[in-house]
Design a protein around this nucleic acid. Structure first.
Length: 330
DNA sequence: CATTCGTGAAGACGAAT
DNA sequence: ATTCGATTTCACGAATG
């Protein structure tokens, strides 16, 4: 349950920013990331263009995420919300909190009129509501900010962020946060959401944008998946192929061959996936696909973009060709 | 010379006890 | 909590082009 009564705070922010001026409707501006050469993804909601790979933000529209409208119900809130906050700024505005004294006296100690008393009562009510009243609310704000930040750095679509938020809220409702870090749970939620959405990001990638180590993330994720009964298929290697192909600048043909190879292998032996790193499998099939399409890539480079050792690529690659040798060769 | 291939030791992880 | 089995990684050297 979310307390929807939150105080708007646009008043303090609209002075400096020109807000959402450029609303480029280009879904994805294709370009290369200056950091890691990964492909860039444009996030029009936030006016950011960030690398899908390393999270490097190319054009940042400052921290202002546009005007905040009042949201009257939950769905509106989800659509319009800047769900928590542009990260840091809001987080520490805990420091500027105000107190409304409980006594019905003015600053000089005079009793207030009845009318004034009523007014003060109303003020108190709204004040406590507006303040992140309990630890859960504060927790949630912090977490949602983090989720937003990480998802954006990973180039995940809006729907996935919402999934992550929902997962996090469920975890919070189930009181699963005890003894666990907000960061860990946020990261795990993002990871889970990405997998559910079929656009998996490997744990390494999550770790790269998270503020904590991989271990607590995996632990929390497992716990999360178990307790919440998240039905998550084991990551499908096919889902990794497009990204690898684009990172390696391979042709469509190579991608198609990779897919064909991988699907036939999976079909012939369902159990083949068990226990194996899906990224490794994807990388191997991409490598094989590139070779079949007569495009040159080394095991090393494929391993680099996939974050997989060449040895693993070798092993998988060998097995792939054994099982799926009936794919057409030019 | 660069790339690929094969190997054994060592670590990491999940499942079972 | 420990142990076991499978997988992955690392480091090296050999083979191949």
């Amino acid at each position: 349950m979310i307390d929807t009564t939150q105080v708007e705070r646009e008043a303090s922010e609209d002075t400096t920013k020109e807000t959402e001026t450029e609303r480029t409707d280009t879904e994805q501006a294709l370009d290369a990331c200056p950091e890691c050469e990964g492909h860039l993804e444009h996030d029009q909601k936030h006016g950011e263009t960030a690398c899908g790979e390393c999270g490097f933000v190319v054009t940042a529209d400052e921290i202002d995420h546009g005007p905040e409208w009042r949201a009257h119900n939950t769905s509106e809130r989800q659509q319009r919300s800047r769900v928590g906050a542009p990260t840091t700024k809001m987080m520490h505005d805990e420091g500027v909190s105000t107190e409304v004294d409980w006594r019905n006296q003015d600053a000089y100690g005079n009793q207030l009129s009845e009318r004034q008393q009523k007014k003060m009562n109303r003020l108190r009510t709204w004040h406590t509501r507006s303040q992140t009243r309990n630890s859960q609310e504060r927790n949630l704000q912090h977490a949602l900010g983090e989720i937003e930040r990480m998802a954006s750095a990973l180039g995940l679509p809006k729907s996935t962020r919402e999934t992550a938020s929902v997962i996090y809220r469920r975890a919070l409702d189930e009181d699963m946060l005890r003894g666990r870090s907000i960061e860990g749970m946020s990261s795990a939620a993002v990871y889970a959401a990405a997998r559910q959405a079929g656009i998996p990001r490997s744990l390494d990638e999550i770790t790269a944008v998270s503020r904590i180590e991989e271990l607590p993330i995996t632990r929390t994720y497992r716990y999360l998946a178990r307790e919440l009964g998240l039905k998550i298929e084991p990551a499908d290697p096919l889902d990794y192929i497009p990204r690898l192909v684009s990172d390696l600048d391979l042709s469509d043909e190579a991608e198609q061959r990779s897919r064909d190879l991988l699907t036939t292998v999976i079909e012939t032996d369902e159990s083949y996936l068990s226990g194996k790193n899906p990224v490794g499998l994807a990388a191997a099939s991409v490598y094989a696909g590139a070779l079949l399409a007569n495009e040159k890539v080394t095991q090393e480079t494929v391993g680099e973009v996939a974050d997989i050792s060449e040895v693993t690529i070798r092993n998988r690659y060998k097995e792939l060709l054994e099982i799926g040798e009936d794919v057409p060769v030019p």
